[in-house]
Every structure is written in C-alpha cells, then in structure tokens.
Design a protein around this nucleic acid. Structure first.
Length: 652
RNA sequence: GGCGGUGUGGUGAAAUUGGUAUACACGAGGGAUUCAAAAUCCCUUUUCUUCGGAAGUGGCGGUUCGAGUCCGCCCACCGCUACCA
C-alpha cells in the first residue's frame, strides 16, 4: 500500500468486514502465558516478548448508562480508581453506537468514512492526529449519574476490550490531549500519595496528565483511598450495583487463519444455506487444492471454479458450497515438527511415534519467529494434546534463536532482493571453507552484517591443517602413545589437546558458539605448528592431536576431515567415530601461573606449584620483586587469594 | 510511544560464575624466501609514554579488595510492534 492506495492498481484502500475463520487462541492465553515460566530452555528475551504479546491485564469492565435508553455502554479500564474523573466516553469508529449516530448526522458519517481509510498498521499511526466527533449521545456515570458526552475517536480500537473507553483527561495523557483539543473538562481525582512530593514537576494538571498512582480526591466516599485500595473498593461497589465487574483482558487476539489466496491448504468446511457451516467429514479429508487452474492476476482462481466449490452438504445432502479461503501458512508450520515423527502415515495426522519423539529437544529458528510462529506452534501443540493426539504440554524443550543476516543494514530477504548466494564462495574456495568462514564470523544468536572479508583466513587455516597432517604422515607410521614416557613439551601439547577437546565439546554441545570452538582449534594448530619433536613419542602425541582435531572439526568441515581421517591411517569411516574423550590425566598441571595485583592493578605473575596452599601462594606473591616495588613503605591492609587465579594485595 | 537487543582495537569478534581486557581471525606495516611474483613462514599492530609506567570496553555516577560483566541515570544505533484504555 502506498499513500492509502493499492501499490498495484492505484485504487483506494479501505477497511472492510469479511467473514473469516479464526482459531480461538485466546482460550489458551492463560496457559500460554503461565507456562512460559517453566520454559527454562528458552531465551529470556523470547519469553519476555511472548509475555508482552499476550499482554494480560487486570481491570474492571464498567457499565455506563445511555441517556434516554435502556441499553448500556461497557468500557474496560485498568484504572477504576480514576472513575470519578471521567468527563467523556469515546467509542471506536466501528462501534454500533457510531454507526447509529452516522445515520442522524452527515458529519459523523463522513468522519467514520475517513477513519475507515486510515491505515492502522502503518508507522504513520504514531504521528497521526487524534481526532474525534461528538455523537450527541450522553453516557450516564454509573456512580454519580452525571451525564458526559459520547465521542467517536480514531484512536479507539474496536478489537480490544469492548471498543469503547472511559476518558479521564486528568490522569491519561492521550485523553488529556483529546480533551484539550475539543474543550472537554479535566477533573483531577488523584493526587500524589505523599503531599510533600506534590510540586509542579510531578503533578501539574494544567500542563499535562498525572498518570501515576496515588491517593483519591474529589471522589466522594472514596476520598483518601490509595489507588490500589480504590481499585478493589470501586470494583466491589460497581458489582453490588450491577454496573460492572472485574475482568481480565488480553492484548492477544484470536488467530485469523483465512486467506483469500490460492496457495494454501483449503479450509475443510462446507457452507450450506440450511445447515450453516459444516465440517468436511473425515472420510473426505484432506480437501486437495486443484492444480488445473488458471491465474488471472487478481483473486484466487478457486473462487471462480464451480467444479471445486460446488458440492453437497454432508449433513442434509442438499446443494452447498465449499469454502474457498485457504489456511494461513502458519497453520502447517505449527505442527510439522510432530508430523515428521509420523512420516508415511496416510491415515492420520499423527500416531504414537510422535509421542516417542516429542517434545523437540533442540529447536533452532530465526529470532524473527520469536512471537508469531513460536506462539502458534505452542498453541497448536496444546490443541493436539487436548484432542488426544499428543501428551506433552510444550513442543520445544530448548530453543536457540538465530540472529538475522543483514545486508546493507537490513534483513536479507528474497523480496528485498538483497540476498547473497553462497555459490560464488563455494566455487572459489569450496563448501568447507564457506561453512567454516560463516560459523567463525559470529555466534549464532547474533545478527550479522554480511561481508566476505576474512574468508581467506578460513581457507588458509584449512590449508595449514592439510599440510600439517601430510607432513606428519610423510614421516611414516607412528607407534602407540605411552602417556607416562613424555617429557615437558609433548606433555604440554597433550594438555592443550585435551583442553581443546573439552572446550570444543562444551562450545558446540552446550553453548552453540561455533566461533569460539573454531578459535580454540586454531590455537591448538598454532601450537602444533611450533611443536617440533621427531621422537617416536613426540610423533605419537602429534598423531593423537591430529586425530582429535579431525573429529572436533568434522561437523563443521566434513569433506576435508573425511579425507584427512583416511590419510592419518584410519581404515574406519569418520562418520562412525565417537566424539573424542577428554583424558583427565592429561589436564593435570604441575605448576600454575598466578596473577598478582596491588590495589587491583596487575603487577606481576608468579609460578606456583599446583599443590601450593593459600598461605604459600600469598607468601610467594608478597615476596615477589616486582610486587615489592609497589608495596614498599606501605601498609598491607589485606590480601585476597583466589586459588588458581590471582592474588590481590591491598595497601595504603 | 511500548517492548526487546546492541555498544569492546582500523575490522569480524573473545573474555562462560565479579578475578590477567582485546583470545582467534581479517586488514595494515616490516622482514625472510624468490631472478621476479604467487604461495608460504617470521615479527609488529589499543592509545599515550620521560620506557618506570599511565589511561582504556558509548557517557556520568555507585557497589566492591577487584566491574566489559552487578546497580542507577543518560546517549547512540538496530529489531519487533503500533495509540492496549
């Protein structure tokens, strides 16, 4: 849409009511919300976003009377404590009262028409002018019986609450601006709880609304109550007068699943004039989308295909029409993970195999799905559970949300045409280099501006590994490793090797930080490159290390590691190998380097025996020559010793 | 406006539980090798410095023996969302 017109044919765009199918996700709002607390394998960020999206809020539905009529006008408020400050009521342009007023006034009708053209989904909403028009009707305050005007306002949403709001200009900034514009009264009913604090900077009703909670004033019998107490008292009072009740509302709306397009699963419903909407009987499922169709550019072709939509009603056998809307594609993505576990079953959606595999241990998806897809999938899982198809409450135990790959500062996408084809990289450097390079550039959660700067480094690294392995193998076969026959240099290489095995296992298996996993293998290879030891045991250590590197890198660069595995003299297939085991005995250190700080500043490093006690470490630190330069002539106040890490000497 | 995120060298980034800031790599500079080049290898590469050190992770403050990490306020950028009563 461009400037309120269709981008394709330039006709005016307007809001229209059309009958559509919805999934009643709001019935599951509480469970979807409450269970977020148990999803500890999910990132907090995603849980918070879902919480806010569901947006549960506690409030009161208040019934206003309408002057001269029997019917009531219901509004929802989270601030019943401000009820005595209501000076008008506003309804949405789509509200029945608005339609009614339009019949009596051309101005009102024109205003509603204008509202129907404004686009509610555009960023322009932010700056959109708050506009309204008086319906001429008067609402009757449920407590005071005062008459207040009923306005139609362009900022009231028909889809939230009851499509009508009570306006308290003194305590809501939006109401305040609207009241100022249309000359409506502003009555203060809340003041700051502590009067001392009530200076102009906090509460000055002549300048702007006071939106904080506080203490009630000008509220008759409710004067002096705190906002919190008044919430309860006023709610109870309204309930006793049958003029309102406590209510919970959600920001979450029901899920509209109808699409007026061809591509999608047909909604399996038959519309019968006599019986209404009738579900397609199970024996006739699935309804298959016809493929012999012609596109005419506008509209879905199946809406013009009698051979598709003409049918008989399963209930009465009379003439009926098949639904021609298709499902939102989120429908299928909401349960495919379960269907994978029931592959080949053409009798049912799912079978018992789904329960064996579900929930998904580790789900991976883009952060852009943090709300919609992940909420729909959770909802659908609960639906399947409630009809007995599955038994688990939640579909995804652990969730990793990938960042997006950006190009020129925005999300890479087909529609924007700013995609990068990895084929060029693959042709120039090979698939292994392309994979290594991409995984090395950043951790997966992070968004990344695409750039191929640095791909040379990945290529160089693989060449070095290749050369290292070949040079090693060319010198002949190695003997069995004897762990106890090693002197310092090979021993230290073994230690680094096993430290690397431990780190890569943790990085890939737990943290999913492939970039740091690769970096630590690079460090190991740097160490091996410097390691020159042609002795039998030296070469045996080299062999062990190279084997480990090949295994550690095999998920990342499968092709080159497959080759090197064979070159290293293995007859077995790399694919059949277990993940390398950490040899704990290789990790043992005889001595440790300890950092010594004076007043938190790094002054020296000392080498101490791994078995040294706290006192021994402290004594060695205090006696260090470099340290003494900074402690000389000063009084030592305390010494903090963190075993294995550092000593901090505090002096004055 | 709301919600979420990010901010560290020239660049991509690392620092996992409050404990050595800048690992690993790119780029750049210098050198070796070469008739020359490519490739490869080695060295240097946060800033300032009186060469002892000093400062330093967007800014200002705080907690702590010790803060990139925790707390408060602020700034900038990115993403999602759109007046939620």
């Amino acid at each position: 849409m461009i400037d309120g017109k269709c981008w394709r044919c330039d006709t005016d765009v307007e809001k229209k009511d059309i009958p559509q199918w919805f999934m009643k996700i709001t019935d599951y709002a509480d469970e979807l919300l409450d269970e977020l607390d148990n999803l500890d394998g999910w990132p907090d960020q995603v849980r918070t976003m879902q919480r806010n999206w569901i947006g549960r809020s506690q409030g009161v539905e208040v019934s206003f009377g309408i002057d001269g009529r029997d019917e009531k006008l219901n509004v929802f408020t989270t601030r019943p404590d401000t009820l005595m400050g209501v000076t008008y009521v506003a309804v949405a342009a789509e509200h029945p009262l608005a339609a009614e007023a339009a019949k009596k006034s051309d101005n009102v009708a024109a205003f509603i028409k204008e509202c129907s053209k404004t686009d509610t989904a555009e960023a322009s909403m932010e700056t959109m002018e708050k506009k309204g028009i008086d319906t001429g009707l008067k609402a009757v305050h449920p407590i005071t019986g005062d008459h207040v005007p009923v306005f139609i306002a362009n900022f009231v949403l028909m889809g939230y609450g009851s499509g009508a709001v009570m306006a308290v200009p003194a305590h809501d900034q939006r109401d305040y601006e609207f009241a100022t514009k249309y000359g409506l009264s502003i009555n203060q009913v809340i003041e700051p709880a502590n009067n001392e604090e009530c200076d102009d900077s906090i509460c000055n009703i002549s300048k702007e609304a006071f939106t904080l909670k506080g203490k009630l004033i000008n509220s008759g019998e409710f004067d002096g109550l705190t906002s919190e107490d008044a919430f309860e008292k006023i709610a109870t009072y309204l309930e006793s007068k049958n003029a309102g009740e406590k209510r919970t509302t959600y920001r979450l709306r029901d899920w509209g699943v109808s699409r007026q397009r061809y591509w999608g699963s047909p909604i399996p419903i038959i519309n019968c004039d006599k019986c209404g909407e009738v579900a397609v009987p199970e024996k006739d499922l699935p309804v298959v989308l016809p493929e012999d169709i012609e596109f005419e550019g506008v509209g879905s072709p199946i809406k013009k295909m009698p051979e598709f939509y003409e049918t008989t009603c399963p209930a009465c056998g009379g003439k009926a029409e098949r639904e021609t809307d298709t499902f939102d594609t989120f429908m299928e993505s909401s349960w495919y993970y379960a269907r994978y576990a029931s592959a080949g079953n053409d009798e049912a959606m799912l079978d018992e195999r789904a329960n064996y595999w579900l929930p998904v241990d580790q789900y991976v998806g883009g952060i852009e799905h943090a709300i919609l897809h992940l909420l729909y999938a959770r909802f659908f899982n609960k639906l399947m559970r409630d009809v007995g198809l599955t038994t688990n409450d939640e579909p995804f135990k652990n969730l990793l949300t990938q960042g997006m790959v950006l190009k020129d500062g925005t999300k890479m996408s087909k529609s924007k045409g700013n995609t990068v084809d990895p084929q060029g990289l693959i042709e120039q450097y090979g698939a292994d280099t392309a994979r290594l390079f991409m995984l090395f550039s950043a951790p997966p959660e992070q968004s990344l501006e695409w750039s191929d700067a640095g791909v040379e480094g990945a290529s160089r690294f693989l060449k070095r590994l290749w050369r290292l392995a070949f040079d090693h193998v060319e010198a002949g076969r190695t003997v069995a490793l004897d762990k106890n026959a090693l002197n310092d240099a090979p021993k230290s290489i073994r230690r680094v090797t096993h430290e690397t095995i431990a780190k890569v296992g943790d990085d890939i298996g737990r943290r999913f930080t492939f970039n740091t996993a690769i970096a630590s293998v690079m460090e190991l290879i740097n160490a091996l490159t410097k390691f020159k030891d042609d002795s039998e045991q030296g070469r045996a250590v080299m062999q062990e290390s190279l084997q480990a590197i090949v295994l550690l890198l095999s998920p990342i660069v499968p092709h080159i590691t497959h080759e090197i595995w064979k070159v290293l003299g293995n007859n077995s297939s790399l694919l059949d190998q277990d993940w390398p085991q950490v040899d704990e005995s290789a990790l043992v250190k005889d001595s440790l380097q300890i950092v010594v700080q004076v007043n938190g500043k790094l002054r020296s490093r000392i080498e101490v025996a791994a078995s040294a006690s706290k006192d021994e470490i402290e004594a060695a630190a205090v006696a260090d020559e470099n340290v003494m330069k900074f402690t000389d002539g000063k009084q030592v106040i305390k010494v903090i010793v963190v075993p294995g890490k550092l000593v901090n000497i505090v002096v004055r």
